[in-house]
Design a protein around this nucleic acid. Sequence first.
DNA 1: TGCAGGACTGTGCACGTTCACAGTAGAGAT
DNA 2: ATCTCTACTGTGAACGTGCACAGTCCTGCA
Lengths: 348, 348
Amino acid sequence: MTNTAPQRRAHSRTKRPPTIIDVADHAGVSRGTVSRVLQGGHKVSPASQEAVHAAIRKLGYVVNRAARSLVTQRAGSVAFLLSEPQERFFEDPNFTTLLRGCTTALGEHDIPLVLITAGTEAERRRVTPFLSTHHVDGVLLISSHRGNPMIDHLRQANLPFVCCGKPLGERGAMSYVAADDREGAMAMVRCLLESGRQRIATIAGPQDTPGGLERLAGYREMLAEHGIAYDKRLVQIGDYSRASGEAAMHRLLATAPNVDAVFVASDLMADGALTAIERAGLRVPDDIAVGGFDDSPVATAARPPLTTIRQPWDRISEMMVRQLLAQIDGEGPATVILPIELVVRESA
Amino acid sequence: MTNTAPQRRAHSRTKRPPTIIDVADHAGVSRGTVSRVLQGGHKVSPASQEAVHAAIRKLGYVVNRAARSLVTQRAGSVAFLLSEPQERFFEDPNFTTLLRGCTTALGEHDIPLVLITAGTEAERRRVTPFLSTHHVDGVLLISSHRGNPMIDHLRQANLPFVCCGKPLGERGAMSYVAADDREGAMAMVRCLLESGRQRIATIAGPQDTPGGLERLAGYREMLAEHGIAYDKRLVQIGDYSRASGEAAMHRLLATAPNVDAVFVASDLMADGALTAIERAGLRVPDDIAVGGFDDSPVATAARPPLTTIRQPWDRISEMMVRQLLAQIDGEGPATVILPIELVVRESA
DNA sequence: TGCAGGACTGTGCACGTTCACAGTAGAGAT
DNA sequence: ATCTCTACTGTGAACGTGCACAGTCCTGCA
């Protein structure tokens, strides 16, 4: 060792947390060595590593992220960005599952999750500069509607991002993670067919969302597979809300009699449909079988409990985080489609 | 002006965002002046202010938070800390409302919200150093159980924090914001009494949570006000889950006949109670009136829809943020109790 | 004309890291 | 004994900002 003189500045500091210099002094090494240990300990002798670790423990040293960010030009955090009106998400149990999963997955990498809402135009104006100046290293983008203005911003800012669900109307390579909506719809309709139902209607989701489109497509595909002609009177569109489900079911009962099953693109709408069916004096599943989608809490709360499709939200969040971190590390974008699961309860 | 020579360093930078120096050069002023404009523009001539603002707009300058943090010793962000098993919260619609409200309220101050979970011991170990080294300026603490280990950490780290709901078993000054649980319970029981009910039971929440305690206390107080003796056979304890509500109602029906109303400390438990009542062949509200608490989505989904107590979650989050920012600015802790609202539906 | 004082402005330093570079010691080969 | 190579270590310079201090200019008063 050539230099063992204290590198600490002279004036006494009042009560600041220990810095890398304190650790270096304590361990009898230089800042550089401590820094290298912090980065993983390559090119550092075992003795030095041990000394540094001991000093870190003793002093309770924790790296100062601001200082690190300043030099590395990395934020060390990731944004969870809601780019649509918030109600849409915060009322959705899937959303909270997703948020929880992402927080946990990021936490394992010691990366803080920054929650950002950009539902309104005003919020978007406030958020854009924050994102485009690399205050986060990447974005988990939660949005389903066509024409998301945030995607352009993110691309322009050259900020890695991963979408939850397939973004509609976008072209160019883009990372996203999604459940297999089409296969989910097909599984449900198959289930209804196999239980002997003849006239299967559907209440689809908004046709500017991937879920809305894919689930309707799956419905059509499975009917076609069974040689059943597509009857557009059996198709109603809702907006995923309970009220819209009730209204849609009401319309179905009025305009398309003899319906003996309905595949509904969300549990919430399915619950609304149950109400409409009950009001019409019909019974579920005796008169009409009802299939939902999401396996949200309302599925078990509903009377009767809903047969539904479970999406692997825990795996979705895990894969989103994995993809994002890979992109931050320089990898190219990728698409991940995850399998779904049919959950049979009493409604079908 | 004494010095108009460019302060920009000589070597060309590849593609970094503009710095305060770029703005200064562009506006023909010094770093100090730009900094002062950024802080609010005191002691800066109108002409300079205008020039700086123009330069900021033209260059698309955004302050580098890492650099600012480094010198101010402030993070510029706030943590939303879940200090209990996550399921508890993520399944709770109130929680998401709270999270949304806090995000919005903080966003108005341009402060990012960092979501942190510390439900398990392992997570807590990972999170503690992060918190105690001022990587956030304050904490919105979400927890209800007695003996929260995080509170000690936060106090020791001298980090401002505001609790959601009254922390139990803690002493010393502490900020918290809560709804008036006791008054809520009293309002509900008053409502039941006024509709002519005679034997009013209750399914209370866990007695190590403030909601559990206060709502039971309100129940007792209102009965006492009406000269009704407290009958402990009419009291069952649940854990806020649907299943526990169903079980508790089951016990009530078995051991305390003639019950004609029940005040349940959460909507979820109330929904479970509805199931138990239905199974017993009784009708709501004809045979037994049911009052819930929370006005969560299940309240409207339940059959019949629940009469319940709405907590002002939007105001709670708003006040939590306000209190926290005040504390960060040096003010002392404070307690805020907000009024509740009775929502009458069909179950009572 | 001189001077005090207010209004505004510029400059040096510190904040705590990381990184590139320049060492240094020791082992082994010649 | 000298040289080369490996393995490790120390050092200076940046990163972009805020703050304290030291100006400078200008107005108004004696």
